[in-house]
């Protein structure tokens, strides 16, 4: 078992996968606490469906514009050049509608996510990229093995985006806390709550697009929500909860990737299963402490 693992660890693809896995897990857990507490968990879920739709558009464009500069530009950046701006746009729109009234925001998210999902599947059917359509759909929804076939270019994009996310989070940490804990108070003493909500929405969108390859669009919310909720069972200050959820998330991602390599299970669902198990353990520890 150990021999097999050591053997795999010498292959660059596996190393890339582990690096990307750790970075994605780290970034996705940072905003988890805020999204859960602000009752924004569903925005993460809605956005992941939007990302699925835009993904389908991107691959359709690639087929439609084969052998043109558009196609080569799209494949060079791994679809991200199209998927990222559209997802960010939807994040901003969702946030704006969500602020008016709770019910309207809920309905808007449901509409957008189901709409994007069906639209994406429709496009994938009309412009199939390969003979194996259901395989393509399944890998987009539940994460592909493409995490194990990453190119150095993908790795660089992921590292750069992760660094941006981490820097933004650290820089705005205190403001994100203030806006999450009490938006009215923050506004009353002159904090630009609208701006920080916007930053939260944009960072969420970036994280979701980043995490899409790793666990697939259906499972992304798990990566955002589980570490935060697990950490909330154990710790009492915002800082401790944030640090703990990062540690848990990274640990579960590493464990998930390694198990999936050894046991040949799908990467995304193995990571999420590890997150669920971690939540169970934290929940029990939390119960005993009280």
């Amino acid at each position: 078992m150990i021999d097999k693992l050591l053997l795999y660890l010498q292959i660059p693809f596996v190393i890339y996968a582990l690096i990307v896995g750790v970075l994605v897990a780290l970034c996705s857990s940072l905003l988890g606490v805020t999204l859960v507490l602000k009752r924004f968990s569903y925005i993460g879920d809605g956005l992941s469906h939007v990302a699925f739709g835009t993904m389908a558009i991107a691959s359709a464009l690639k087929v439609a514009a084969e052998n043109t500069p558009v196609a080569s530009a799209l494949s060079a950046t791994g679809d991200m050049i199209l998927v990222m701006p559209l997802t960010i746009l939807c994040a901003v729109l969702l946030l704006k509608t969500g602020q008016n009234t709770a019910v309207k925001g809920d309905a808007a998210i449901a509409m957008l996510s189901v709409g994007a999902l069906s639209f994406g599947y429709l496009i994938m059917n009309i412009f199939p990229t390969s003979g194996n359509l259901s395989g393509d759909v399944c890998s987009t929804l539940f994460g592909s093995t493409s995490i194990l076939t990453l190119l150095p270019a993908d790795l660089i994009v992921c590292v750069i985006l992760s660094i941006i996310v981490i820097v933004v989070f650290v820089f705005f940490y205190n403001k994100i806390f203030a806006v999450t804990f009490d938006e009215d108070f923050a506004k009353a003493i002159g904090t630009q709550a609208g701006v920080y909500n916007l930053i939260i929405a944009i960072v969420t969108a970036v994280i979701i697009v980043l995490a899409m390859d790793l666990v697939g669009t259906l499972l992304i919310s798990a990566l955002v929500i589980f570490p935060a909720i697990s950490a909330m069972r154990l710790f009492k200050s915002y800082r401790a909860v944030t640090v703990c959820s990062v540690v848990l998330s990274v640990f579960c991602a590493l464990a998930g990737i390694i198990i999936s390599i050894l046991a040949g299970t799908p990467v995304g669902s193995t990571i999420v299963a590890a997150d669920v198990a971690a939540f169970g353990i934290c929940w029990i520890i939390g119960k005993f402490r009280r």
Binding site: V33, N174, D184, A186, I189, G190, M232, Y238
Partner: peptide, 28 residues
């Protein structure tokens, strides 16, 4: 301005220490 708002639902389950919350009053 200082403001003592009515408590919100979000705060009922908020993991934050007293120090962190009082400190956030300096945001202005």
């Amino acid at each position: 301005f200082g403001y003592l708002p009515q408590q919100t639902i979000v705060q009922k389950d908020f993991p934050a220490s007293v120090y962190e919350i009082v400190l956030s009053g300096n945001q202005g």
